[in-house]
Design a protein around this nucleic acid. Structure first.
Length: 937
RNA sequence: GGGCGCUUGGCGCAGUGGUAGCGCAGCAGCUUUACACGCUGUGGGUCGGGGGUUCGAAUCCCUCAGCGCCCACCA
C-alpha cells in the first residue's frame, strides 16, 4: 500500500484477493487436520438450482454462511463449507424445453424423445449450469470449491438409488393408485408441498337437479327451513317441496328438485353421486333416491341417474347442504366415492382438457373454457338458479403457476422414516434452558477465565455448555437449535400431521426410479418369470414384503422383489448395475418416472461427503467422520418442510445422527414497499450490478446491517451505499495512520500488530515478557502487543479507546454466537465510526501534530506510543471486520503490514487465519492501569 | 378455521422494567492538511387504540384494530 488512494476502490482488489485465497488453498478443508485443538466446523450450502442466477436472497444467505465460515477459521477451526447445485427437476426441464422451443428446434418434448432431451439438458447444464457458483465467488464466498457437488453426479445418484432401495425393502416406499396433485402444465404429479394455495375470485353456481324415485307424498315433508344458514335455505329453496301443493299441471308425478352449489360446473359430467349429510333433516329422507345429472346434455336421462347418498363429510351449513360428488376430480369426493363404492368417471385429461365423457359440448375444451360452456348449458336447461360471486382457495402448481388438478394416478409414495425421533430432536421454545447463545459472557466480576473461554464452543453446543465450559453440565440429550426459535413450532406442527410423500414425477430430468417391472398374465407370476430363483418363489408367498434376490448372481449384487397382485406386476428394486442388466435381459422394463428433486436433496448433508450405505466404508471415510454432523445450516423458512425437515429424517435414518446442530432461518428479501422480489415486477436488483457499483463488501455489509434475525428484510439500495461509505471510512482511517507513519520517526511501513489474545496468553508474567519497542519482531510468527505500547505513556484517550475496543470485541463476538448478525454489524459500525474515528482519531491529532523536539524525547515517545495504540486497535478491528468485509480487510491487512498469528507457510500472511480477538482478561485492567472510571465510560 | 409475526420521528429499523436511539431523508453551516462515500450543529416521536400489574412500561399481562406470513379436503 505504498500509494494509497483517496477512496477505496473495490474493483481493483476483490478479484486479486479472491485469487490469492484460492492459490493459497485457504478454502480447502482437510479432515486430516481436525483434532482436539482444531475442531471441525462445517456447513453445506443450500444447493441453488443449476439454472439459477444470483439473487439478493442468495446474497443474504451466503453472506451469512461466509461470515460463519470465516469466523470459524479465525477461531482456529478446520472449516468445510461445501458448495454445489441442485438439478431442480421441473424447473430445469422447463427452462431447457422452453429454450429449445424458442429456438424452433422442437414443438414438444416428444419430438426429441427422452434420451435426446436428457442429453440436451446435460449439455445445457455443462454450458450454463452453475453460473450461480461463479457469481458466489464475486461475493467472496469461501466455499471449498474442490468439493463442489451436483445432485446428479454419478456418486450422488448412487446414493439416491441406494436410499430408494433401502426404503423399498423396509416397506417405506409403496406404489399406489391415489388422488394426487396433478400439474396440467408440467404433466406430472406433485407433492402436497409443491401446491400453493391462492385465493381466487370466482362464482358459486347453484343449479337444480331433479330427484327421481320420490313420490310427491314423501316430498312434501321437506320444506326449506329458514333456520340455519340463511343463504342456503332461503335463497335456494333447496327442494321444490311445495311442488305437491303446486299441483304441477304436467302429466305424471310432480318433480322434486335439489339445488346444488358448485364452483366447478365443468365437472358435472363426472359426478357419480349427490351427497347430503345423513343428519340433515331437510334431505335425509332422500338418501337412496336418485337425481338426474344435467350434463352431458345429449345423454339419455336414464344414463344420467346418480344416487343420493348420505355422508358425514357434507357440511349442511355450506352452500345448499347438497354436495355433488366427482370422485375423479376432487380429493374429498374421491374419499366419499371410496366409502360408497362409487364409479370414478374421468372427464378431464392429464393436460387439463375435457374428454369425450364430458359430452360433445365440452369435449376437447380446456377446463376453464369448459366451465363457461357448462354454465351456459345449465342456463339453457333452466337448471341454473344463480351465480354468486365467491372467493375460494385454489391450489396452484409451485413451478408452473397453474391451478393443479386433483387426479387419480399410480404413483410411488413414501412413508416418512424416523418421524418421532426427528420431531423430538428440535428444541422447542421455552422447553430447554436456552443456554450459551444468549446468556453471553458473564459480568466483569467473574473470575479470571470468564472472558477468555471460546464463547463459540459454548454457544454452539446446543444444550448445556455454560460459558465457563467446566464439565459440570449434565449430559442432556442434544437438541437441534433453530434460530429464531419460533420456527421450531412450525416444524413441530408439520411433523405432526405428516401425509405420505408422493415421490414420483412424470418427468425426464432427474433420478430415474430404480425399479424394474414385469407384468404377468396368469394367476401366478412364476410362469412368466424365467430366471427367478427359489427365494423368489418363496417371496411370492408374501406380497406385503420385499424379498431379497439376486438375478445376476454377482457378489454384492442384490435386488428386492415384490409382487403386486392388484396390478399383476412384479416390481424389482435394485441399485446394482449387474442386476439391472440381467433384469433387462429377463424382459423387465424400468419405471419411466423420475424422483422428486427433494428426494435427492434430503440426502445433501451426507451424500455430498461420499456416503455409501456401507457401514465399514463410511466409518473409514475421513470427510464424513470429520464433518458430519454439520455445524450450521443457513436457509430460508420457505423450505423448512421441503428440505430441512426431510434432511433431519434422512440424517437419522442413514447416519443415525442429526444432520446439523443449528439451523438459522433468514428472512425473505422484499423491496422497499414490502413486495416480494420478482422478475415480473422488475424490483429485483442484480447483485452483480451492485457489486460492480459498490463493491462486494459494501453489499455484504449493507445487507447484513439491515437483516434482523428472522425478520423479512426490506431491501433498499441505500443500505449498500451505506456499506460502501463505511468501507471508505475504514479505508481512510487506515490511510490516516499510514500518513502518520511516514511523517514520524517510527519504523516505516511495517507497524507491528498483535492481538489482545496474545496479550492474555502471556498471562501473569506479561510484565516480564515485554520487549523493547521497535521493529525487531518483523517476520516472526507472532507479535507481542506490549512490545509496542508503553503503558506508562497511555493517555486517557488511549485507555478509553482500548476499553471501547474491548467492549466491541465482546459485543460482536456475542452477537455472532447468537446469530444476531445485524447486531454485530451495528456494533462494528458504531465502534469504528462513532468511537474510533469521531473521537479517538480526532483526539490523537493533538498529540501527533506536536512539533518534534530533539531536546524533549518524551514528545517523540508519546507520538510513537499513540501510533502503537492505533496499530493495535486497527489490527484488531480488521480482524473483527473480516467475516463481514473480507476483501477490504485483506487489502488493508496486507497494506498495513500486519501479520497473522501463524507462520507464513501456514497461512500467516493472510488475515483469513488471523486469530479472532478476545476481550481482555481482568488482570489486564491493572496492567494497563485502566481505572474503573474508564470501564464506565 | 387454527398458528405465527409485525405496528416506535417522513422512510427503514434498534431498543424486553428506570428520564426514547440508529441510518437515510430534512434544515443551517464547513475547500478543518484520513475521508464531501466527509465534518460540525440542528429540528422532528405522549413508542397502533384501550385496560391492567408496578414507585416506575415502548419493554410484562389482558383486550381491540390494522397489515403480513404459514397451516387446514367447506363443495
Amino acid at each position: 500500500m505504498s500509494e494509497i488512494s483517496k477512496a477505496y476502490e473495490p474493483q481493483s482488489v476483490e478479484a486479486k484477493w479472491y485469487q490469492f485465497w484460492l492459490d493459497q488453498n485457504c478454502f480447502t478443508a482437510d479432515p486430516a487436520r481436525v483434532s482436539e485443538s482444531r475442531p471441525a466446523y462445517s456447513i453445506v450450502i443450500p444447493p441453488p438450482n443449476v439454472t439459477g442466477v444470483l439473487t439478493l436472497g442468495h446474497v443474504l444467505n451466503n453472506t451469512i454462511q461466509d461470515i460463519l465460515a470465516r469466523k470459524a477459521r479465525m477461531d482456529g477451526k478446520e472449516v468445510l463449507w461445501l458448495p454445489g447445485t441442485d438439478h431442480a427437476g421441473i424447473a430445469t426441464q422447463n427452462v431447457v424445453e422452453k429454450s429449445l422451443k424458442k429456438a424452433g428446434e422442437i414443438k414438444h418434448r416428444n419430438d426429441l424423445g427422452r434420451e435426446a432431451l436428457v442429453a440436451r439438458i446435460w449439455e445445457w447444464k455443462e454450458k450454463y449450469g452453475g453460473i450461480i457458483l461463479q457469481q458466489l465467488r464475486a461475493l467472496g464466498a469461501s466455499c471449498d470449491w474442490t468439493r463442489t457437488r451436483f445432485t446428479m453426479d454419478p456418486e450422488y445418484s448412487r446414493c439416491v438409488s441406494r436410499v430408494f432401495v433401502d426404503l423399498y425393502k423396509k416397506g417405506h416406499i409403496y406404489r399406489g393408485k391415489r388422488m394426487v396433485n396433478w400439474c396440467p402444465a408440467s404433466l406430472t404429479a406433485l407433492s402436497d408441498e409443491e401446491v400453493i394455495m391462492k385465493e381466487q375470485k370466482g362464482f358459486l353456481y347453484h343449479f337444480k337437479v331433479e330427484v327421481v324415485g320420490s313420490t310427491p307424498a314423501s316430498g312434501v315433508a321437506v320444506g326449506a327451513p329458514a333456520d340455519g344458514s340463511g343463504r342456503a335455505a332461503s335463497s335456494t329453496r333447496s327442494i321444490a317441496a311445495d311442488g305437491a301443493s303446486a299441483a304441477a299441471p304436467g302429466a305424471g308425478a310432480v318433480p322434486t328438485f335439489l339445488t346444488i352449489a358448485t364452483t366447478r360446473p365443468e365437472t358435472i359430467p363426472g359426478d357419480t353421486a349427490v351427497a347430503v349429510n345423513p343428519k340433515d333433516p331437510r334431505y335425509a329422507h332422500l338418501i337412496g333416491k336418485h337425481v338426474v345429472r344435467p350434463l352431458p346434455v345429449e345423454l339419455p336421462r336414464e344414463q344420467k341417474l346418480i344416487p343420493i347418498i348420505g355422508d358425514e363429510h357434507v357440511d349442511f351449513e355450506f352452500g345448499t347442504g347438497v354436495l355433488k360428488v366427482t370422485p375423479a376430480h376432487d380429493k374429498a369426493d374421491f374419499e366419499i366415492g371410496q366409502r360408497h363404492k362409487l364409479p370414478v368417471v374421468e372427464v378431464i385429461e392429464a393436460d387439463g382438457k375435457m374428454n369425450a365423457l364430458a359430452g360433445q359440448d365440452l369435449n376437447g375444451l380446456d377446463r376453464f373454457a369448459a366451465r363457461k360452456i357448462a354454465v351456459e348449458k345449465l342456463k339453457e336447461l333452466g337448471a341454473l338458479e344463480k351465480e354468486e360471486p365467491y372467493t375460494n382457495n385454489v391450489g396452484f402448481s409451485e413451478r408452473a403457476d397453474v391451478p393443479i388438478e386433483p387426479r387419480l394416478s399410480e404413483q410411488w409414495f413414501l412413508k416418512y422414516p424416523r418421524v418421532t425421533q426427528s420431531k423430538a430432536c428440535v428444541a422447542q421454545p421455552g422447553s430447554a434452558p436456552a443456554s450459551g447463545a444468549d446468556s453471553g459472557v458473564p459480568p466483569e466480576s467473574l473470575s479470571a477465565r470468564g472472558f477468555s473461554i471460546s464463547a463459540n464452543v459454548a454457544a454452539r453446543s446446543p444444550v448445556g455448555g455454560t460459558p465457563t465450559g467446566a464439565g459440570e453440565t449434565p449430559a442432556l440429550p442434544e437438541k437441534m437449535q433453530f434460530y429464531p426459535e419460533r420456527w421450531a413450532k412450525v416444524y413441530d406442527h408439520w411433523m405432526t400431521g405428516l401425509q405420505d410423500w408422493c415421490i414420483s414425477r412424470q418427468l425426464w430430468w432427474g433420478h430415474r426410479i430404480p425399479v424394474w417391472r414385469k407384468e404377468w398374465s396368469g394367476k401366478k407370476p412364476d410362469r412368466t418369470m424365467e430366471g427367478l430363483s427359489v427365494e423368489v418363489l418363496q417371496a411370492e408367498l408374501n406380497f406385503e414384503n420385499a424379498a431379497k434376490v439376486s438375478f445376476s448372481r454377482e457378489p454384492g449384487s442384490e435386488s428386492w422383489i415384490r409382487f403386486d397382485n392388484e396390478f399383476k406386476t412384479c416390481f424389482v428394486a435394485t441399485w446394482s448395475p449387474a442386476e439391472e442388466q440381467k433384469l433387462v435381459q429377463l424382459g423387465f422394463t424400468q419405471d419411466p418416472d423420475v424422483l422428486d428433486t427433494w428426494f435427492s436433496s434430503w440426502l445433501w448433508p451426507f451424500a455430498t461427503m461420499g456416503w455409501t450405505d456401507d457401514k465399514s466404508q463410511d466409518s473409514n471415510n475421513p470427510t464424513l467422520r470429520a464433518f458430519y454432523p454439520t455445524t450450521d445450516l443457513v436457509t430460508g423458512p420457505d423450505i423448512i418442510f421441503f428440505w430441512v425437515a426431510r434432511m433431519i429424517m434422512a440424517g437419522y435414518e442413514w447416519m443415525g445422527e442429526m444432520p446439523f446442530r443449528n439451523v438459522y432461518f433468514t428472512g425473505i428479501i422484499r423491496d422497499k414497499q414490502g413486495r416480494k422480489m420478482s422478475k415480473s415486477l422488475g424490483n429485483s436488483p442484480d447483485p452483480l450490478d451492485l457489486i460492480n457499483q459498490y463493491g462486494a463488501d459494501a453489499l455484504r455489509f449493507g445487507i447484513m446491517r439491515s437483516a434482523p434475525q428472522g425478520q423479512d428484510l426490506l431491501f433498499d439500495e441505500q443500505s449498500v451505499e451505506l456499506g460502501r461509505n463505511f468501507c471508505n471510512k475504514l479505508w481512510n482511517a487506515c490511510r490516516f495512520r499510514q500518513m502518520q507513519s511516514s511523517a514520524s520517526a517510527s519504523a516505516p511501513g511495517v507497524p507491528p500488530g498483535g492481538t489482545l489474545e496474545q496479550s492474555s496468553g502471556a498471562g501473569s508474567e506479561s510484565g516480564s515478557t515485554r520487549r523493547d519497542a521497535g521493529g525487531t519482531t518483523e517476520g516472526t510468527a507472532t507479535f507481542e502487543f506490549e512490545a509496542d505500547i508503553q503503558t506508562s505513556l497511555l493517555t486517557s484517550d488511549d485507555k478509553w479507546i482500548l476499553l471501547k475496543l474491548n467492549a466491541a470485541i465482546r459485543e460482536v463476538t456475542e452477537a455472532l454466537n447468537g446469530y444476531r448478525f445485524n447486531e454485530a454489524a451495528n456494533a462494528l459500525y458504531r465502534f469504528f465510526w462513532s468511537e474510533y474515528c469521531d473521537w479517538y482519531v480526532e483526539a490523537t491529532k493533538a498529540v501527533l501534530q506536536l512539533p518534534d523536539d530533539p531536546s524533549n524525547p518524551r514528545v517523540a515517545a508519546r507520538k510513537q506510543n499513540t501510533l502503537a495504540v492505533m496499530d493495535f486497535v486497527l489490527s484488531n478491528t480488521l480482524r473483527l471486520f473480516h467475516p463481514f468485509l473480507p476483501f477490504i480487510t485483506e487489502e488493508l491487512w496486507q497494506g498495513m503490514g500486519f501479520n497473522g498469528d501463524l507462520p507464513k507457510d501456514q497461512g500467516g500472511d493472510t488475515i483469513m487465519f488471523a486469530r479472532w480477538p478476545k476481550p481482555f482478561d481482568p488482570e489486564f485492567r491493572d496492567f494497563y492501569a485502566l481505572d474503573d472510571c474508564y470501564l464506565e465510560r
